[in-house]
């Protein structure tokens, strides 16, 4: 049940970056790498395959094409459906599991960049984590020693996530200053 997956929704992140205004593909990649790609910059190929998927789904539209060759000349703008999609993604808590930090960090930064309520995202996640911790605690109480040990392992990891959530909510003001321009 507790699996180690590093999931990061590149599509939602790029969409979120478009909320502040239309951008070219190369500009999107640069913004992504600067804010979220610390250890893993995006390949151009990822950007264009993601953008063509978003285009097909009506979440972005082409806002203009510069003269010249190559896909990086396209300028993308987010659509209403795209904004709704970002909103839904931000408001939905992640399934609690260890190593969520990169997704949660991305959500929090995007919320700050798009002037949404980042504290709300953290609290929603916190409630979801605690909900799973209650289920595990209950299972532990009814189970044998093996159940107890397995549940405890998951519980300690979820607890670590929760500490991070709490600490991050206490530091939102500071984080906002760092990520917001000006």
């Amino acid at each position: 049940m507790v699996c180690i997956v590093l999931r990061m929704s590149i599509g939602h992140t790029l969409l979120g970056l478009l909320e502040s205004g239309p951008r070219h593909g190369y500009d999107l990649k640069r913004a992504f790498d600067e804010k979220f790609g610390h250890d893993k910059p995006l390949h151009y190929g990822q950007v264009y395959s993601t953008m063509s998927r978003l285009l097909k789904n009506g979440l972005v539209e082409v806002d203009g094409i510069e003269a010249g060759e190559g896909p990086e000349r396209k300028r993308y703008a987010i659509t209403e459906a795209g904004i709704t999609d970002v909103q839904r993604w931000l408001a939905t808590p992640e399934k609690p599991e260890p190593y969520l930090q990169s997704t949660l960090y991305t959500k929090v930064v995007l919320a700050l960049l798009t002037h949404r309520d980042a504290a709300d995202i953290l609290d929603t996640q916190r409630a979801e984590h605690l909900r799973l911790m209650r289920i595990l605690t209950d299972r532990k109480r009814r189970g044998d020693l093996a159940d107890q040990l397995i549940c405890d392992h998951a519980l300690f990891h979820l607890e670590a996530d929760l500490r991070w959530l709490e600490l991050t909510s206490a530091r939102l003001g500071k984080l906002a200053k760092e990520v917001l321009p000006g």
Binding site: D123, R126, T137, L155, E159, S169
Partner: peptide, 20 residues
């Protein structure tokens, strides 16, 4: 401690004197 709170049915969080 969240592991202690997991024995509850429900939680409220108090921040700056306000409850949520």
């Amino acid at each position: 401690e969240t592991r202690v709170a997991a024995y509850s049915d429900r939680e409220i969080v108090v921040r700056d004197g306000k409850s949520r």
